[in-house]
Design a binder for these strands. Structure first.
Lengths: 230, 230
DNA sequence: ATAGATATCTATCACTCGATAGATTTCAAC
DNA sequence: GTTGAAATCTATCGAGTGATAGATATCTAT
Protein backbone atom coordinates (compact mmCIF):
# COMPACT_ATOMS: atom_id res chain seq x y z
CA UNK A 1 0.00 0.00 0.00
CA UNK A 2 1.41 3.34 -0.98
CA UNK A 3 0.51 5.86 1.70
CA UNK A 4 -1.12 8.56 -0.35
CA UNK A 5 -3.66 9.83 2.12
CA UNK A 6 -2.23 13.16 3.21
CA UNK A 7 -0.55 14.95 0.35
CA UNK A 8 1.33 13.58 -2.62
CA UNK A 9 0.82 11.14 -5.44
CA UNK A 10 2.31 7.71 -4.65
CA UNK A 11 5.79 8.77 -5.77
CA UNK A 12 7.23 8.58 -9.28
CA UNK A 13 6.21 5.08 -10.31
CA UNK A 14 8.90 2.83 -11.68
CA UNK A 15 6.79 -0.27 -11.35
CA UNK A 16 3.13 -1.14 -11.38
CA UNK A 17 0.52 -0.17 -13.93
CA UNK A 18 1.75 2.42 -16.40
CA UNK A 19 -1.47 4.45 -16.49
CA UNK A 20 -1.39 5.29 -12.80
CA UNK A 21 -1.19 9.04 -13.31
CA UNK A 22 -3.95 8.93 -15.91
CA UNK A 23 -6.17 7.09 -13.42
CA UNK A 24 -5.48 9.71 -10.82
CA UNK A 25 -6.47 12.48 -13.18
CA UNK A 26 -9.59 10.66 -14.33
CA UNK A 27 -10.69 10.30 -10.73
CA UNK A 28 -10.09 13.97 -10.01
CA UNK A 29 -12.00 15.03 -13.10
CA UNK A 30 -14.95 12.84 -12.16
CA UNK A 31 -14.78 14.01 -8.56
CA UNK A 32 -14.70 17.69 -9.52
CA UNK A 33 -17.83 17.23 -11.56
CA UNK A 34 -19.64 15.19 -8.93
CA UNK A 35 -18.65 17.36 -5.96
CA UNK A 36 -19.44 20.51 -7.93
CA UNK A 37 -22.84 19.25 -8.90
CA UNK A 38 -23.93 17.46 -5.73
CA UNK A 39 -21.68 18.67 -2.91
CA UNK A 40 -19.36 16.77 -0.62
CA UNK A 41 -21.77 14.57 1.28
CA UNK A 42 -24.29 13.97 -1.49
CA UNK A 43 -21.76 12.90 -4.10
CA UNK A 44 -20.83 9.24 -3.54
CA UNK A 45 -17.48 7.60 -4.04
CA UNK A 46 -19.09 4.82 -6.06
CA UNK A 47 -20.61 7.39 -8.39
CA UNK A 48 -17.22 9.02 -8.85
CA UNK A 49 -15.41 5.72 -9.39
CA UNK A 50 -17.92 4.66 -12.01
CA UNK A 51 -17.70 8.00 -13.84
CA UNK A 52 -13.91 7.72 -13.79
CA UNK A 53 -14.08 4.16 -15.11
CA UNK A 54 -12.24 2.60 -12.15
CA UNK A 55 -13.15 0.35 -9.26
CA UNK A 56 -14.07 1.82 -5.90
CA UNK A 57 -10.84 1.10 -3.98
CA UNK A 58 -8.81 3.05 -6.53
CA UNK A 59 -9.97 6.19 -4.74
CA UNK A 60 -8.65 5.02 -1.40
CA UNK A 61 -5.43 3.91 -3.01
CA UNK A 62 -4.72 7.26 -4.66
CA UNK A 63 -6.24 9.67 -2.17
CA UNK A 64 -6.58 7.82 1.13
CA UNK A 65 -10.29 8.47 1.55
CA UNK A 66 -13.17 10.63 0.36
CA UNK A 67 -11.93 13.69 2.20
CA UNK A 68 -8.45 13.22 0.74
CA UNK A 69 -9.96 13.18 -2.74
CA UNK A 70 -11.92 16.31 -1.93
CA UNK A 71 -8.81 18.13 -0.76
CA UNK A 72 -6.92 16.94 -3.83
CA UNK A 73 -9.67 18.48 -5.95
CA UNK A 74 -9.32 21.77 -4.10
CA UNK A 75 -5.56 21.83 -4.58
CA UNK A 76 -6.06 21.00 -8.23
CA UNK A 77 -8.44 23.92 -8.64
CA UNK A 78 -6.05 26.31 -6.99
CA UNK A 79 -3.20 25.12 -9.20
CA UNK A 80 -5.29 25.43 -12.37
CA UNK A 81 -6.46 28.85 -11.34
CA UNK A 82 -2.99 30.18 -10.78
CA UNK A 83 -2.01 28.89 -14.21
CA UNK A 84 -5.04 30.44 -15.83
CA UNK A 85 -6.41 33.61 -14.33
CA UNK A 86 -3.63 34.82 -12.09
CA UNK A 87 -2.11 36.90 -14.88
CA UNK A 88 -5.02 39.32 -14.96
CA UNK A 89 -5.27 39.56 -11.20
CA UNK A 90 -1.54 40.12 -10.90
CA UNK A 91 -1.61 42.77 -13.60
CA UNK A 92 -4.45 44.58 -11.88
CA UNK A 93 -2.66 44.27 -8.55
CA UNK A 94 0.53 45.77 -9.97
CA UNK A 95 -1.36 48.53 -11.75
CA UNK A 96 -3.12 49.43 -8.53
CA UNK A 97 0.18 50.16 -6.82
CA UNK A 98 0.40 53.27 -8.98
CA UNK A 99 -3.02 54.53 -7.81
CA UNK A 100 -4.45 54.83 -11.32
CA UNK A 101 -7.34 57.18 -12.15
CA UNK A 102 -10.92 55.99 -11.59
CA UNK A 103 -11.70 55.25 -15.23
CA UNK A 104 -8.73 52.90 -15.49
CA UNK A 105 -9.89 51.12 -12.35
CA UNK A 106 -13.42 50.73 -13.60
CA UNK A 107 -12.08 49.32 -16.86
CA UNK A 108 -10.09 46.75 -14.93
CA UNK A 109 -13.15 45.97 -12.85
CA UNK A 110 -15.25 45.42 -15.96
CA UNK A 111 -12.58 43.17 -17.45
CA UNK A 112 -12.24 41.06 -14.34
CA UNK A 113 -15.96 40.61 -13.95
CA UNK A 114 -16.36 39.64 -17.59
CA UNK A 115 -13.55 37.18 -17.27
CA UNK A 116 -15.17 35.76 -14.17
CA UNK A 117 -18.52 35.47 -15.91
CA UNK A 118 -16.96 33.47 -18.71
CA UNK A 119 -15.14 31.31 -16.20
CA UNK A 120 -18.52 30.53 -14.68
CA UNK A 121 -20.39 30.06 -17.91
CA UNK A 122 -17.63 28.35 -19.87
CA UNK A 123 -17.18 24.68 -20.61
CA UNK A 124 -18.24 21.89 -18.32
CA UNK A 125 -14.86 21.59 -16.61
CA UNK A 126 -14.49 25.25 -15.63
CA UNK A 127 -18.09 25.33 -14.52
CA UNK A 128 -17.51 22.36 -12.25
CA UNK A 129 -14.54 24.07 -10.67
CA UNK A 130 -16.49 27.26 -10.06
CA UNK A 131 -19.39 25.23 -8.69
CA UNK A 132 -16.99 23.44 -6.37
CA UNK A 133 -15.58 26.69 -5.02
CA UNK A 134 -18.94 28.43 -4.68
CA UNK A 135 -20.38 25.43 -2.88
CA UNK A 136 -17.48 25.26 -0.49
CA UNK A 137 -17.83 28.95 0.34
CA UNK A 138 -21.39 28.26 1.40
CA UNK A 139 -21.34 24.80 2.94
CA UNK A 140 -17.93 24.88 4.60
CA UNK A 141 -16.53 21.49 3.77
CA UNK A 142 -13.07 20.11 4.45
CA UNK A 143 -11.52 22.28 1.73
CA UNK A 144 -12.93 25.58 2.88
CA UNK A 145 -9.75 27.06 4.29
CA UNK A 146 -7.63 26.24 1.23
CA UNK A 147 -10.09 27.78 -1.19
CA UNK A 148 -10.93 30.73 1.00
CA UNK A 149 -7.32 31.66 1.68
CA UNK A 150 -5.96 31.05 -1.80
CA UNK A 151 -8.85 31.99 -4.06
CA UNK A 152 -11.83 33.70 -2.51
CA UNK A 153 -10.24 36.18 -0.12
CA UNK A 154 -7.57 37.35 -2.60
CA UNK A 155 -10.20 37.66 -5.32
CA UNK A 156 -12.48 39.75 -3.14
CA UNK A 157 -9.58 41.90 -2.00
CA UNK A 158 -8.43 42.70 -5.55
CA UNK A 159 -12.00 43.50 -6.51
CA UNK A 160 -12.40 45.70 -3.44
CA UNK A 161 -9.20 47.56 -4.30
CA UNK A 162 -10.56 48.20 -7.77
CA UNK A 163 -13.84 49.42 -6.30
CA UNK A 164 -11.93 51.80 -4.05
CA UNK A 165 -9.88 52.93 -7.04
CA UNK A 166 -13.09 53.62 -8.96
CA UNK A 167 -13.88 56.19 -6.32
CA UNK A 168 -10.44 57.72 -6.30
CA UNK A 169 -9.34 56.13 -3.07
CA UNK A 170 -6.31 53.93 -2.55
CA UNK A 171 -7.18 52.61 0.89
CA UNK A 172 -9.79 49.84 0.91
CA UNK A 173 -12.76 50.36 3.21
CA UNK A 174 -15.31 47.84 4.42
CA UNK A 175 -17.90 49.31 2.09
CA UNK A 176 -15.64 48.47 -0.85
CA UNK A 177 -15.40 44.89 0.36
CA UNK A 178 -19.16 44.68 0.66
CA UNK A 179 -19.56 45.94 -2.89
CA UNK A 180 -16.89 43.56 -4.15
CA UNK A 181 -18.70 40.66 -2.52
CA UNK A 182 -21.96 41.72 -4.10
CA UNK A 183 -20.39 42.09 -7.54
CA UNK A 184 -18.90 38.62 -7.44
CA UNK A 185 -22.04 37.18 -5.92
CA UNK A 186 -24.16 38.72 -8.65
CA UNK A 187 -22.25 36.67 -11.21
CA UNK A 188 -22.96 33.49 -9.31
CA UNK A 189 -26.49 33.78 -10.65
CA UNK A 190 -25.06 32.35 -13.87
CA UNK A 191 -23.00 29.63 -12.25
CA UNK A 192 -24.68 28.28 -9.19
CA UNK A 193 -28.05 29.29 -10.59
CA UNK A 194 -27.36 28.70 -14.25
CA UNK A 195 -30.45 26.64 -14.96
CA UNK A 196 -32.76 29.11 -13.30
CA UNK A 197 -31.09 32.00 -15.08
CA UNK A 198 -31.50 30.31 -18.44
CA UNK A 199 -35.13 29.56 -17.71
CA UNK A 200 -35.81 33.17 -16.75
CA UNK A 201 -33.99 34.51 -19.76
CA UNK A 202 -35.81 32.01 -21.93
CA UNK A 203 -32.65 30.69 -23.53
CA UNK A 204 -31.38 27.15 -24.01
CA UNK A 205 -27.79 27.98 -23.05
CA UNK A 206 -25.41 30.81 -22.26
CA UNK A 207 -24.40 31.62 -25.83
CA UNK A 208 -22.67 34.73 -27.10
CA UNK A 209 -25.93 36.68 -27.21
CA UNK A 210 -26.70 35.93 -23.59
CA UNK A 211 -23.15 36.85 -22.55
CA UNK A 212 -23.48 40.18 -24.31
CA UNK A 213 -26.68 40.83 -22.43
CA UNK A 214 -24.99 40.11 -19.13
CA UNK A 215 -21.93 42.13 -20.10
CA UNK A 216 -24.20 45.13 -20.57
CA UNK A 217 -25.68 44.53 -17.13
CA UNK A 218 -22.18 44.34 -15.65
CA UNK A 219 -21.35 47.64 -17.31
CA UNK A 220 -24.30 49.42 -15.75
CA UNK A 221 -23.66 47.99 -12.32
CA UNK A 222 -20.00 48.96 -12.50
CA UNK A 223 -21.05 52.43 -13.56
CA UNK A 224 -23.04 52.67 -10.38
CA UNK A 225 -20.13 51.50 -8.27
CA UNK A 226 -17.91 54.03 -9.98
CA UNK A 227 -20.51 56.77 -9.55
CA UNK A 228 -20.64 57.48 -13.23
CA UNK A 229 -23.60 58.08 -15.56
CA UNK A 230 -23.75 55.65 -18.43
CA UNK B 1 -53.04 5.64 9.90
CA UNK B 2 -54.17 9.02 8.66
CA UNK B 3 -53.11 9.35 5.06
CA UNK B 4 -51.22 12.61 5.19
CA UNK B 5 -48.60 11.98 2.58
CA UNK B 6 -49.74 14.07 -0.33
CA UNK B 7 -51.26 17.32 0.85
CA UNK B 8 -53.14 18.18 4.00
CA UNK B 9 -52.73 17.89 7.73
CA UNK B 10 -54.50 14.80 9.09
CA UNK B 11 -57.85 16.59 9.18
CA UNK B 12 -59.21 18.73 12.03
CA UNK B 13 -58.50 16.45 14.97
CA UNK B 14 -61.39 15.72 17.28
CA UNK B 15 -59.62 12.81 18.91
CA UNK B 16 -56.09 11.78 19.63
CA UNK B 17 -53.37 13.84 21.29
CA UNK B 18 -54.29 17.49 21.68
CA UNK B 19 -50.88 18.83 20.71
CA UNK B 20 -50.94 17.29 17.25
CA UNK B 21 -50.82 20.60 15.41
CA UNK B 22 -48.03 21.84 17.66
CA UNK B 23 -46.03 18.71 16.84
CA UNK B 24 -46.56 19.31 13.16
CA UNK B 25 -45.30 22.84 13.46
CA UNK B 26 -42.32 21.84 15.55
CA UNK B 27 -41.31 19.31 12.91
CA UNK B 28 -41.65 21.87 10.12
CA UNK B 29 -39.58 24.40 12.05
CA UNK B 30 -36.85 21.87 12.69
CA UNK B 31 -36.99 20.68 9.09
CA UNK B 32 -36.75 24.20 7.67
CA UNK B 33 -33.63 24.80 9.69
CA UNK B 34 -32.04 21.47 8.83
CA UNK B 35 -32.93 21.52 5.13
CA UNK B 36 -31.84 25.16 4.87
CA UNK B 37 -28.52 24.46 6.50
CA UNK B 38 -27.66 21.06 5.05
CA UNK B 39 -29.86 20.52 1.99
CA UNK B 40 -32.37 17.81 1.21
CA UNK B 41 -30.19 14.74 1.07
CA UNK B 42 -27.67 15.71 3.75
CA UNK B 43 -30.23 16.58 6.39
CA UNK B 44 -31.46 13.41 8.08
CA UNK B 45 -34.91 12.64 9.34
CA UNK B 46 -33.51 11.50 12.69
CA UNK B 47 -31.72 14.82 13.07
CA UNK B 48 -34.97 16.67 12.36
CA UNK B 49 -37.01 14.48 14.68
CA UNK B 50 -34.55 15.00 17.51
CA UNK B 51 -34.46 18.77 16.99
CA UNK B 52 -38.25 18.81 16.99
CA UNK B 53 -38.35 16.74 20.16
CA UNK B 54 -40.36 13.90 18.66
CA UNK B 55 -39.72 10.29 17.72
CA UNK B 56 -38.76 9.41 14.17
CA UNK B 57 -42.07 7.93 12.96
CA UNK B 58 -43.88 11.17 13.78
CA UNK B 59 -42.50 12.52 10.50
CA UNK B 60 -43.97 9.69 8.48
CA UNK B 61 -47.25 10.02 10.32
CA UNK B 62 -47.65 13.73 9.63
CA UNK B 63 -45.98 14.07 6.25
CA UNK B 64 -45.85 10.60 4.71
CA UNK B 65 -42.13 10.58 4.10
CA UNK B 66 -39.06 12.79 3.86
CA UNK B 67 -40.08 14.25 0.53
CA UNK B 68 -43.55 15.00 1.87
CA UNK B 69 -41.98 16.91 4.74
CA UNK B 70 -39.80 18.80 2.30
CA UNK B 71 -42.77 19.80 0.18
CA UNK B 72 -44.70 20.82 3.30
CA UNK B 73 -41.79 23.10 4.19
CA UNK B 74 -41.92 24.67 0.74
CA UNK B 75 -45.66 25.28 0.98
CA UNK B 76 -45.14 26.73 4.43
CA UNK B 77 -42.55 29.14 3.12
CA UNK B 78 -44.79 30.27 0.30
CA UNK B 79 -47.65 30.84 2.72
CA UNK B 80 -45.49 32.78 5.16
CA UNK B 81 -44.07 34.85 2.35
CA UNK B 82 -47.47 35.85 1.03
CA UNK B 83 -48.47 36.88 4.52
CA UNK B 84 -45.29 38.86 5.02
CA UNK B 85 -43.72 40.45 1.98
CA UNK B 86 -46.46 40.32 -0.60
CA UNK B 87 -47.73 43.73 0.42
CA UNK B 88 -44.68 45.53 -0.86
CA UNK B 89 -44.50 43.48 -4.04
CA UNK B 90 -48.19 44.06 -4.69
CA UNK B 91 -47.85 47.75 -4.07
CA UNK B 92 -44.95 48.00 -6.46
CA UNK B 93 -46.84 45.93 -9.02
CA UNK B 94 -49.86 48.20 -8.82
CA UNK B 95 -47.75 51.34 -8.96
CA UNK B 96 -45.99 50.03 -12.05
CA UNK B 97 -49.27 49.86 -13.94
CA UNK B 98 -49.22 53.65 -14.03
CA UNK B 99 -45.74 53.72 -15.64
CA UNK B 100 -44.21 55.92 -12.92
CA UNK B 101 -41.13 58.09 -13.57
CA UNK B 102 -37.66 56.54 -13.23
CA UNK B 103 -36.84 58.01 -9.84
CA UNK B 104 -39.98 56.49 -8.32
CA UNK B 105 -39.03 53.13 -9.81
CA UNK B 106 -35.51 53.29 -8.46
CA UNK B 107 -36.87 54.18 -5.03
CA UNK B 108 -39.08 51.10 -5.13
CA UNK B 109 -36.14 49.04 -6.29
CA UNK B 110 -34.03 50.26 -3.40
CA UNK B 111 -36.80 49.53 -0.93
CA UNK B 112 -37.38 46.03 -2.22
CA UNK B 113 -33.70 45.16 -2.19
CA UNK B 114 -33.29 46.48 1.33
CA UNK B 115 -36.29 44.51 2.46
CA UNK B 116 -34.84 41.44 0.81
CA UNK B 117 -31.48 41.99 2.47
CA UNK B 118 -33.13 42.13 5.88
CA UNK B 119 -35.16 39.06 5.08
CA UNK B 120 -31.87 37.28 4.39
CA UNK B 121 -29.98 38.67 7.33
CA UNK B 122 -32.80 38.67 9.85
CA UNK B 123 -33.54 36.19 12.57
CA UNK B 124 -32.72 32.51 12.40
CA UNK B 125 -36.17 31.52 11.11
CA UNK B 126 -36.27 33.89 8.15
CA UNK B 127 -32.69 33.05 7.29
CA UNK B 128 -33.54 29.36 7.21
CA UNK B 129 -36.41 30.03 4.84
CA UNK B 130 -34.24 32.08 2.53
CA UNK B 131 -31.53 29.41 2.70
CA UNK B 132 -34.10 26.80 1.81
CA UNK B 133 -35.29 28.72 -1.23
CA UNK B 134 -31.82 29.66 -2.43
CA UNK B 135 -30.65 26.08 -2.08
CA UNK B 136 -33.61 24.75 -3.99
CA UNK B 137 -33.01 27.22 -6.83
CA UNK B 138 -29.53 25.76 -7.17
CA UNK B 139 -29.88 22.09 -6.39
CA UNK B 140 -33.30 21.40 -7.87
CA UNK B 141 -34.92 19.27 -5.24
CA UNK B 142 -38.51 18.02 -5.06
CA UNK B 143 -39.83 21.48 -4.19
CA UNK B 144 -38.19 23.35 -7.04
CA UNK B 145 -41.28 23.95 -9.12
CA UNK B 146 -43.38 25.25 -6.23
CA UNK B 147 -40.77 27.74 -5.11
CA UNK B 148 -39.77 28.77 -8.61
CA UNK B 149 -43.31 29.38 -9.79
CA UNK B 150 -44.64 31.03 -6.66
CA UNK B 151 -41.64 32.91 -5.31
CA UNK B 152 -38.57 33.17 -7.48
CA UNK B 153 -40.05 33.88 -10.91
CA UNK B 154 -42.57 36.47 -9.66
CA UNK B 155 -39.86 38.13 -7.58
CA UNK B 156 -37.49 38.37 -10.52
CA UNK B 157 -40.25 39.64 -12.76
CA UNK B 158 -41.26 42.44 -10.39
CA UNK B 159 -37.63 43.40 -9.99
CA UNK B 160 -37.15 43.34 -13.75
CA UNK B 161 -40.17 45.59 -14.23
CA UNK B 162 -38.69 48.04 -11.77
CA UNK B 163 -35.36 47.92 -13.60
CA UNK B 164 -37.14 48.65 -16.86
CA UNK B 165 -39.03 51.46 -15.17
CA UNK B 166 -35.73 52.94 -13.94
CA UNK B 167 -34.82 53.37 -17.56
CA UNK B 168 -38.14 54.86 -18.56
CA UNK B 169 -39.42 51.76 -20.25
CA UNK B 170 -42.62 49.92 -19.43
CA UNK B 171 -41.94 46.76 -21.42
CA UNK B 172 -39.53 44.32 -19.76
CA UNK B 173 -36.59 43.15 -21.86
CA UNK B 174 -34.27 40.22 -21.30
CA UNK B 175 -31.54 42.60 -20.22
CA UNK B 176 -33.76 43.82 -17.40
CA UNK B 177 -34.30 40.24 -16.28
CA UNK B 178 -30.56 39.62 -16.32
CA UNK B 179 -30.00 42.69 -14.17
CA UNK B 180 -32.80 41.70 -11.82
CA UNK B 181 -31.24 38.28 -11.39
CA UNK B 182 -27.88 39.82 -10.66
CA UNK B 183 -29.32 42.26 -8.13
CA UNK B 184 -31.08 39.51 -6.21
CA UNK B 185 -28.09 37.23 -6.51
CA UNK B 186 -25.80 39.92 -5.16
CA UNK B 187 -27.79 39.91 -1.93
CA UNK B 188 -27.36 36.18 -1.59
CA UNK B 189 -23.79 36.95 -0.58
CA UNK B 190 -25.24 37.79 2.82
CA UNK B 191 -27.54 34.79 3.09
CA UNK B 192 -26.03 31.78 1.43
CA UNK B 193 -22.56 33.16 2.05
CA UNK B 194 -23.20 34.90 5.33
CA UNK B 195 -20.26 33.44 7.20
CA UNK B 196 -17.81 34.29 4.46
CA UNK B 197 -19.21 37.78 4.14
CA UNK B 198 -18.86 38.37 7.87
CA UNK B 199 -15.32 37.07 7.81
CA UNK B 200 -14.40 39.36 4.93
CA UNK B 201 -16.06 42.36 6.53
CA UNK B 202 -14.36 41.47 9.80
CA UNK B 203 -17.58 41.60 11.79
CA UNK B 204 -19.09 39.12 14.23
CA UNK B 205 -22.63 39.48 12.88
CA UNK B 206 -24.82 41.47 10.53
CA UNK B 207 -25.67 44.28 12.91
CA UNK B 208 -27.15 47.67 12.06
CA UNK B 209 -23.76 49.06 11.08
CA UNK B 210 -23.13 46.27 8.62
CA UNK B 211 -26.60 46.65 7.16
CA UNK B 212 -26.02 50.37 6.62
CA UNK B 213 -22.82 49.55 4.81
CA UNK B 214 -24.63 47.14 2.52
CA UNK B 215 -27.51 49.58 2.04
CA UNK B 216 -25.01 52.10 0.71
CA UNK B 217 -23.65 49.48 -1.68
CA UNK B 218 -27.18 48.70 -2.85
CA UNK B 219 -27.74 52.40 -3.47
CA UNK B 220 -24.69 52.70 -5.69
CA UNK B 221 -25.52 49.59 -7.65
CA UNK B 222 -29.10 50.74 -8.16
CA UNK B 223 -27.76 54.08 -9.31
CA UNK B 224 -25.84 52.25 -11.99
CA UNK B 225 -28.89 50.28 -13.07
CA UNK B 226 -30.87 53.52 -13.23
CA UNK B 227 -28.11 55.27 -15.13
CA UNK B 228 -27.85 58.01 -12.54
CA UNK B 229 -24.82 59.68 -10.96
CA UNK B 230 -24.73 59.34 -7.21
C1' DA C 1 -66.38 4.19 32.17
C1' DT C 2 -65.40 2.74 28.04
C1' DA C 3 -65.01 2.42 23.01
C1' DG C 4 -62.82 3.97 19.17
C1' DA C 5 -60.28 7.10 16.45
C1' DT C 6 -56.01 9.76 16.74
C1' DA C 7 -51.36 10.43 17.84
C1' DT C 8 -47.03 8.83 19.44
C1' DC C 9 -43.57 5.56 20.56
C1' DT C 10 -40.10 1.28 20.46
C1' DA C 11 -37.92 -1.89 17.67
C1' DT C 12 -36.55 -3.42 13.43
C1' DC C 13 -35.91 -4.01 8.26
C1' DA C 14 -33.67 -3.42 3.85
C1' DC C 15 -30.51 -0.60 1.69
C1' DT C 16 -26.60 2.47 0.68
C1' DC C 17 -22.57 4.55 2.21
C1' DG C 18 -17.38 4.81 3.02
C1' DA C 19 -13.88 1.86 4.10
C1' DT C 20 -10.81 -2.14 3.78
C1' DA C 21 -8.98 -7.01 3.63
C1' DG C 22 -7.03 -9.83 0.48
C1' DA C 23 -6.47 -11.71 -4.19
C1' DT C 24 -4.91 -10.44 -8.83
C1' DT C 25 -2.77 -8.06 -12.61
C1' DT C 26 0.85 -5.16 -14.63
C1' DC C 27 5.45 -3.79 -15.43
C1' DA C 28 10.50 -2.70 -14.73
C1' DA C 29 14.81 -4.69 -13.02
C1' DC C 30 17.75 -8.46 -12.99
C1' DG D 1 11.97 -16.03 -17.57
C1' DT D 2 11.64 -14.74 -12.70
C1' DT D 3 10.87 -11.61 -8.99
C1' DG D 4 8.92 -8.01 -6.40
C1' DA D 5 6.92 -3.52 -5.96
C1' DA D 6 3.02 -0.82 -7.75
C1' DA D 7 -1.63 -0.62 -9.23
C1' DT D 8 -6.05 -2.48 -9.63
C1' DC D 9 -9.68 -5.49 -8.66
C1' DT D 10 -13.59 -8.51 -6.11
C1' DA D 11 -15.93 -9.18 -2.00
C1' DT D 12 -17.22 -7.78 2.34
C1' DC D 13 -17.83 -5.13 6.84
C1' DG D 14 -19.88 -1.87 10.07
C1' DA D 15 -22.33 2.38 10.46
C1' DG D 16 -26.09 5.17 9.33
C1' DT D 17 -30.20 6.04 6.39
C1' DG D 18 -35.38 6.21 5.31
C1' DA D 19 -39.08 3.49 6.12
C1' DT D 20 -42.48 0.72 8.67
C1' DA D 21 -44.77 -2.93 11.62
C1' DG D 22 -46.86 -3.17 15.72
C1' DA D 23 -47.49 -1.78 20.54
C1' DT D 24 -48.92 2.08 23.49
C1' DA D 25 -50.72 6.39 25.07
C1' DT D 26 -54.18 10.18 24.67
C1' DC D 27 -58.45 12.27 24.07
C1' DT D 28 -63.52 12.79 22.56
C1' DA D 29 -68.06 11.04 22.19
C1' DT D 30 -71.28 8.38 24.14
Amino acid sequence: MAEASTQEAPAASRQGYAKSEATREAIIAAALSAFGRYGYSTATTRQIAEAAGVALPAIAYHFGNKEGLYLACARDIVARYYAQAADLALEAGLALEAAPPPDVCSDYLRHILRRLLRLFAQDEASGSQADFVAREMRDRGPAFQILYDQLWAPGVEITARLVAGCQGRKAVQDGDRAEALMLISSLLAFNTGRDVALQILGRPNLDAGALNLIDAAIDRIVDGVAGRTS
